[in-house]
Every structure is written in structure tokens, then in C-alpha cells.
Simulated assay, not measured.
Amino acid sequence: MMVPRVVPVTGVQRITPRTVRITVSGVNVAPPTPDAHVKVFFPLPGQSAPHLAPPVAGDLVSWYRSYLDMPDELRPPMRTYTVRAYRPDRAEIDIDFVLHGDDGLASRWAGAARPGDLVAVLGPAGQAAAGDGPRWHLLVGDETAVPAIGSIIEAAPAGTRLRAFVEVADPEEHQRFASRAEVDIQWLYRNGHSVLLDAVRATEFTGEGAQAWVAGESGMVRAVRRHLVRERGFEAAMVSFHGYWQAGMSEEDVGRAGLRRIAAGQSPEEADDDAIEMAPESLRSG
């Protein structure tokens, strides 16, 4: 049975001018992978805590239907975030939020969050970000993928070689990651449009014997994955790809689209050869 739990904020720390790290307690499930995620439910204006959907016996799709069936005036906004750190002795997790002013409810909430505030959390869950055996690992993502990229780098064992392309707003958004691995990070700055694909295209490497992890805006992810598989020799099974957000659509919009595909007997993901994860469990905001 899938039951989100209301948890308190216990810490707030500004990491960069546009990133705030928020700690919540009461999460006693270990993240299964370095890029594991949780669903966070936010209170609506005037609420001290989010109003949750009733428990549902069944799978994620059953629960998600019940969530979307809630009246608009009660349904708490939900977004998906990477677990940046986990401290089992205190049942605490850290979640990094990318701030973009008051354009979104989650950004507004995170920008004003204080210890004692209440949200609800479901998870964590995740898929393996890197397998055993590849000669090296390629990481590609925008600022919404920085928490997962940081966790993957920090979890990599000695002797692992990683190369990362990370797109952020400006040099103030750089972060440092402690690692036992050999890591090469190229920080990129957008100028009105994403530059990740161009940067990857302009860099010399081969995908033979390598593994890639790509996340961020869905259009960028699709384009980078296509390039890696078709032009760089990456095996399709060795490219882990995640659409964390989609321009012009909320997580609820994407979830409804996924449920419509399921109802039509299709995969919840986009039905083409370059499909990326846009099912409710994969879209996230940081």
C-alpha cells in the first residue's frame, strides 16, 4: 500500500544563489541507488500541511489515479526530487531545490521554507544509475540533474572514470563533489537555449565499452540519447535517460498523459524509438 507521510523540515541551507538544500526528517527508507528520488507533496496556500489522497491497495498507477482524482481545491501539488543525502541515524534526507523565483509553487515554497514547515514524502525509489564493468561513465544534465550527478560522482568507487557535462545558469552555480573516482566536469552556461547537445557533439570520445546517464529537460535528453546511440556507438541498453521536466507541462499534465497511454494499452512512456521516461514516477524538478 502506497502511503505518503507528512514530515517536518529540519534544516534549510543555501548551496548556490539558485539552489537551496532542505532537510526533512522521518524518512527511514534507504535510497536504493545514487540517483534515487522521492515524491514531495506541498501544502496549498492557506494550508499548514498537504491534504493527502486516501491510501490505495495496489500499484503506483492505482495510487496515481486516486491522486489525480482528488478535487483541484484539495489535491496537493507534487514534484519529484533526487535524494541528495541520507542520514539513517537521524532518518533524514536532503533535497536540493532549484529556485526560479515565484514562477512555480515548489520554487516559492522552497524559497520561503523554514524549520518546522510540513510537506509529505513518498519514496524513495530509483533505478541503478551505473552498472559494473564499463570502462568509463558519461553524465549529462542541466541544473535539475545536478543533485543526482553529485550523488553519482560521490558514490563512485576508486578506479572509476567519469566525465560530466553540466549546464547551469552561470559560474555561481558551480558545486564541488568529493569523490574517490577520477572525475572530469565541464560546466556549461546556457545563453537563451540549452548548449548541452552542442558541447557533447564537440567533444571527442567513443561510446565503446562505456555507460551514459542523461537527465534534464525531455527534449534535450531525447536529442542527447539519440546522438550517443546513433553517432557515438553507445549500446542503447547502456544509456540511462530520464526526462526530469518538459517545457510547458506540469508533472500532473505529464502524469495524465501517461495514464491515457496506459488506458489505451500503450506504454506510459512516449511511444517511439527515442522514448524517454515521462511516466509519473520519473518526471522531477531537481
Rank of each mutant, 00 (worst) to 15 (best):
E73A: 15
G46S: 01
A178T: 14
F234D: 11
R176E: 13
E143Q: 08
E217Y: 13
R230L: 13
A275F: 10
Q13G: 01
P31S: 03
V7C: 06
Y86A: 07
F42K: 10
E281A: 14
P54Q: 10
E204L: 13
V61E: 10
W136D: 12
R260Q: 13
K39Q: 09
M78D: 04
F42L: 13
P32E: 06
F241E: 11
P50S: 05
A169C: 08
D198M: 03
D184T: 08
P45C: 02
A158T: 13
H37C: 11
R90T: 12
G258D: 01
P54C: 05
E252A: 11
F234Q: 10
E252S: 03
V6M: 05
S107A: 06
G258P: 02
D89P: 01
R230K: 14
D103K: 14
F165K: 00
F205K: 02
P32I: 02
E173V: 09
F42A: 01
T16G: 00
N28K: 02
T82V: 05
Y86W: 04
W136T: 07
N191L: 06
E173L: 08
A169R: 15
M70W: 05
S151Q: 15
H193G: 00
V195E: 10
V27S: 09
V146N: 04
S179R: 12
S107T: 10
D272W: 11
V121N: 07
R232Q: 03
I149P: 12
P71Q: 07
L122S: 09
F234H: 07
P34N: 01
A57G: 02
R90D: 09
G159E: 09
I93G: 03
G216W: 14
F42D: 00
R84L: 07
E270S: 13
G26F: 02
R284C: 15
D69M: 09
S25I: 03
R230A: 13
D94L: 03
I95A: 06
Q266P: 06
N28G: 01
L162R: 04
D102A: 08
Q211M: 14
A112V: 13
D72R: 12
L105S: 08
A210V: 00
T82F: 10
